[in-house]
Design a protein around this nucleic acid. Structure first.
Length: 269
DNA sequence: TCCTTATGTACAA
DNA sequence: TGTACCTAAGGAC
């Protein structure tokens, strides 16, 4: 599930269930056991997300830094918590709720200073109030790298993943292979504000929907999609299927070890 | 039951 | 550019 919207939603959900409580902290899988013992029964005092990074603050300045990577998953439930399976890296449990984290790339206890270093290497996040999109455009507009690659570069813009990347480029008719330096200020403004809107909706619904109302299955009569990632999309994982707008075939290609999807007709420069 | 795939990233060569 | 890492689901047999 993990693009930025998922992580911001998790920050909200961890807060809703555990903020200002002192949960039992454990690491049944073992890799986080020492830190879990230090935090056990400490108060959760804040939660925060920046891009795909999640931070949980305990006491004054102890942070758990979580990055889900490609496989990480989080599961919330009501107390009493069932016996944890041996893949649960981190479990929080209080009198009302429990939450299990499995398969993260990162789950580590860090200091304020270490946390700041992570913020410093991330670009602006469309879901954060402090985001300055011109910082991102400054990098995009002087890069020969493709806009498709730049949108996935967390140093440039934080939180966009493979789904939002493909979908936002489709929605603006931009060829994914166009160099960043050829994106105009007007195009960048439109891409950024669209990401803000799409990702906010993603946080709200806990899924990625990018299809405009006039192109939804309800409006067009075509069958709904809804696959693993849960939402209605134009191009993501629709290789060789007809484009919702022009009927041409959606294409897929490997770009930096990830799958890129686009419509060569609708997204021709 | 095995194989592939996945919304990610870091590091080596 | 390739590979390693972490987990689970779906499809092929």
């Amino acid at each position: 599930m993990p693009e930025g919207h998922t992580i911001h939603r998790l920050a909200q959900d961890y807060a809703a269930a555990f903020l200002r409580t002192a949960p039992h902290v454990t690491s049944p899988q073992g890799k986080f056991s020492d830190a879990a013992a230090l935090l056990d029964r400490a108060e959760l005092t804040d939660t925060e997300a920046h891009g795909k990074h999640l931070f949980l603050r305990f006491r004054e300045a102890d942070w758990i830094h979580i990055h889900l990577g490609l496989f990480g998953k989080v599961n919330f439930g009501d107390a009493p918590a069932p016996p944890a399976t041996d893949t649960v890296r981190l479990r929080l449990a209080n009198s009302a709720s429990y939450v299990d984290l499995r398969g993260p790339t990162t789950c580590a206890l860090i200091t304020d200073t270490e946390k700041q270093a992570i913020h410093d290497r991330l670009g602006p996040d469309p879901l954060r109030e402090d985001a300055d999109d011109q910082t991102a455009y400054a990098r995009v507009s002087r890069s020969r790298t493709t806009i498709a690659a730049l949108l996935m570069d967390q140093k440039v813009i934080a939180g966009v993943g493979n789904v939002y990347r493909a979908e936002v480029l489709f929605r603006h008719g931009i060829d994914p292979y166009r160099p960043g330096r050829d994106i105009t200020p007007t195009e960048w403004d439109a891409l950024w504000s669209d990401l803000v809107a799409l990702m906010r909706e993603g946080v709200r619904n806990n899924r990625i929907d990018t299809v405009r109302p006039e192109h939804t299955p309800e409006a067009t009569g075509r069958p709904p999609r809804v696959d693993d990632h849960g939402g209605e999309v134009y191009v993501y994982r629709r290789a060789n299927l007809p484009c919702h707008l022009c009927g041409g075939e959606i294409r897929a290609a490997a770009l930096a070890a990830r799958n890129l999807f686009w419509c060569p007709i609708c997204q021709r420069d």
